[in-house]
Design a protein around this nucleic acid. Structure first.
Length: 477
RNA sequence: GUCCCCAUCGUCUAGCCUGGCCUAGGACACCACCCUUUCAAGGUGGCGACACGGGUUCGAAUCCCGUUGGGGACGCCA
């Protein structure tokens, strides 16, 4: 008996470094990564930077940083296509010498005019193959491009893991350019050479590439390679049903980080866009690795729902380890100009605020009162709560708070309760003025926790200030 | 225009392959109520969809055809 050879799965993510890592690309990368991990295979990262005009190092870094933040680690790469030029040249020469590709001397002007004409006639713009049978270059011709000799008849059948059975007529295709006049190869060619050379078994990529697939398969055959399995992932759209772009707001993965999202929340959100496992909404990464299968991905495009992402983010903020969230919080503290050393321990802030914030940025904003004094009371809050009736309760609570020796939420709670009792007001009548006094606003965590975060000396000083504020207002009235 | 693809609540989706268990389930959002020292969080309930039209069938969200709508591709970009 022959031992069965198990070919291990190899997937790749192949972004072009012409911009940021946006959520669409990130989801594609996630699917590639998950599938490789699920199958115990390898995940390869390849940077498609053959367009030197538009590729930038900054984009490469943004992609790498984005993937690192999401935890999408790769087993091989990053490989840069610009460093593999010799490989492409060899293959182009080979196709040329085997008569599977040819030099084309048509000018851009002619091609453009041709396209124009075809469009006017209502047919698909395609190269007409004029140089296909040329044996010698026409006199005075410009440097030629190299075109692939695409089959004119027959069809290409793709059994896509997501789309199913898709058929393309070769007659719909044309002889695409695989090398520019300067010899540099183009996308459709480098992809095929690389996927072949890197022994990629599963090409998982965006839906916008489905029409490139038959061309690539034809090139692949010409090169004598074996086909990988294809899976075309549907697009992510904006709320208006149009392809997601900057004008829809945050689309860059790193922007989400800066806006206070946890990577696990983005990951969880992204994976549920087009994929599901029954009614389950919350998935840990290890669960995903176990459950994910590319064949379970939907065919239809989906709309990015920011609200659901917010919900997931809060879910993860609520259940994450406080010290870990605290560490993440630091960067946002700095961003808002708050001094971490000038207030309570950040993990205490997390514990108090995690049910009140959908993002880390929001959490920091809502906790600013614990790190620095505010300039003014919020007008409506002061008008409503800092009135003469509050004077007595505030003085009373100041006194009982002053006598608290151990500044804990429990002790503070007791002190506030006592003050309310001794002045004969309901807790609400005391808590709200106190809240405004201490935070400047009518909204904050429970009053004992709020006071606790503020700290004793600051709290007392702020109550004094509020009392003075009320007295001043009464005197001028 | 040509080719390719898609179509279940506002949104993400389950169900579709292998018709009956679907008077279509879950989640986000929204609304109401409960809890409550504010805001949240939590709890309970509500609103809300098989794009349309034809078939096939005893029976269709599920299979077939068409229509409509949407997306993608048609680069010396990737």
């Amino acid at each position: 008996m022959r031992p069965s050879i198990t070919v291990s799965v190899r997937t790749r993510f192949a972004p072009s470094p012409t911009g940021l890592l946006h959520v669409g690309g990130a989801r594609t990368a996630l699917f590639c990564w998950l599938y490789a991990r699920h199958c115990g295979g390898s995940f390869v990262l390849r940077i498609e930077d053959t367009d030197r005009e538009r590729s930038t190092e900054a984009s490469v870094n943004a992609i790498l940083e984005g993937m690192a933040w999401l935890g999408l680690d790769y087993d091989e790469g990053p490989f840069y296509q610009t460093q593999r030029m010799a490989l492409y040249h060899d293959q182009i020469e080979r196709l040329l010498s085997e008569g599977k590709a040819y030099r084309c001397y048509c000018t851009r002007e002619r091609i453009e005019a041709l396209r124009e004409e075809q469009r006017a006639k209502g047919i698909k713009p395609r190269y007409d193959g004029r140089c296909r049978k040329l044996s010698t270059p026409p006199p005075g011709a410009p440097d030629p491009v190299v075109r692939f000799k695409n089959p004119r008849e027959g069809e290409v059948v793709v059994d896509d893991l997501i789309r199913g059975h898709v058929v393309f007529a070769n007659a719909e295709l044309d002889d695409l350019i695989i090398a520019r006049p300067d010899g540099t190869p183009t996308y459709n060619f480098t992809v095929v050479v690389d996927d072949l050379e890197m022994r990629i078994t599963h090409v998982i990529r965006g839906d916008d590439h489905i029409n490139n697939t038959p061309r690539q398969i034809n090139i692949l055959h010409a090169l004598g390679g074996a086909r990988p399995v294809y899976a075309h992932v549907p697009m992510i759209l904006g709320p208006d049903g149009q392809r997601l772009s900057k004008r829809h707001g945050a689309v860059s993965v790193l922007q989400f980080r800066d806006d206070g999202f946890l990577p696990e929340a983005l990951l969880n959100y992204l994976v549920r866009l087009g994929w599901s496992h029954g009614d389950q909404e919350i998935f840990s990464v290890s669960e995903l690795v176990q459950l994910f299968d590319i064949a379970d991905v939907n065919k239809a495009a989906s709309v990015f729902d920011f609200d659901k992402l917010l919900w997931l983010n809060q879910h993860y903020i609520k259940q994450a380890d406080a010290t870990r969230v605290a560490a993440e919080l630091e960067r946002h503290m700095a961003q808002l100009g708050l001094d971490v050393g000038d207030g309570p321990d950040l993990s205490e802030v997390v514990n108090v605020q995690r049910e009140r914030a959908k993002t880390l940025v929001e959490m920091v904003e809502k906790s600013a009162f614990a790190f620095r004094d505010f300039d003014d009371y919020e007008e409506t809050a002061a008008k409503k709560h800092l009135k003469t009736v509050a004077l007595e309760p505030l003085r009373s609570v100041r006194e009982s708070l002053d006598s608290v020796s151990e500044w804990t939420p429990q002790a503070i709670h007791q002190a506030v309760l006592e003050a309310a009792e001794s002045t004969g007001v309901k807790l609400g009548k005391l808590a709200q003025p106190l809240r405004v006094a201490v935070t400047g606003t009518a909204v904050s965590p429970s009053i004992d926790q709020t006071l606790w975060l503020v700290g004793k000396s600051r709290a007392l000083a702020r109550i004094d200030a509020a009392v003075a504020h009320i007295e001043r207002a009464a005197a001028s009235a």
